[in-house]
């Protein structure tokens, strides 16, 4: 039970329920869980190119020859890659930072693998860097930093837009978002 509590959102009560369920009713499922977790821990590492979690040396996306290698989307976490893959028709490649610049937590460019990104930008294949870091102060600082790296090499850097959520009502949108949305308005 104590082991299950390492999962997010699992407190003592749910841990007890899960443990009893696995032991009393679903021993087979428990076996599968053990096996999968074991395999995952052993095999899954980071993709050599984009640093996302991957079973092979190159992740599925980086290995796919049909994807557009001139577009590079920079995101903070592997979960962001999944979100973008599901929601957008983006056909380029990703680079996963595994965090954001946060000087007070001791996270600088080296921790985010920006030297790898440097090498990748130097290779000259990438023509546009899409900065899809979170719209937090740290995310913005990270985006500004990477944008400077790209611009040094004459590579176009773009930032994803911030705005009012679909189906939202202006009245209930927070001031910051609304200000951003207003400043970033487009001609129709």
């Amino acid at each position: 039970m104590a082991a299950l509590r390492c999962l997010p959102g699992v407190g003592p009560k749910s841990a007890q329920r899960m443990a009893l369920h696995l032991l009393e009713r679903d021993r087979e499922g428990a076996g599968r869980l053990v096996e999968t977790l074991h395999l995952a821990l052993e095999r899954i590492g980071h993709c050599r190119l984009c640093r996302t979690l991957s079973e092979s040396e190159l992740c599925v996306l980086c290995a796919n020859p049909r994807r557009d290698r001139s577009l590079l989307c920079v995101v903070e976490t592997p979960a962001d890659v999944l979100a973008l893959e599901q929601a957008t028709g983006f056909q380029g490649l990703y680079f996963v930072l595994m965090g954001h610049l946060s000087p007070l937590d001791g996270i600088g460019p080296a921790e985010l693998g920006l030297d790898e990104l440097d090498v990748r930008l130097d290779a000259g294949v990438v023509s546009e860097v899409i900065l899809a870091t979170n719209p937090t102060v740290e995310g913005e600082a990270t985006a500004a930093y990477i944008a400077a790296l790209a611009q040094e090499r004459g590579i176009r850097a773009t930032r994803i837009a911030h705005g009012v959520p679909l189906g939202g009502e202006l009245e209930y949108v927070d001031g910051g978002t609304l200000a951003h949305a207003f400043a970033g308005r487009r001609t129709l």
């Binding site: 102060v137 913005e140 600082a141 500004a144 001031g175």
Partner: peptide, 16 residues
Amino acid sequence: QPQSSLPPARLLSGLY
């Protein structure tokens, strides 16, 4: 007051 956040280029100085 209405948000007056720092422009991205100045964030670093703010973080400093």
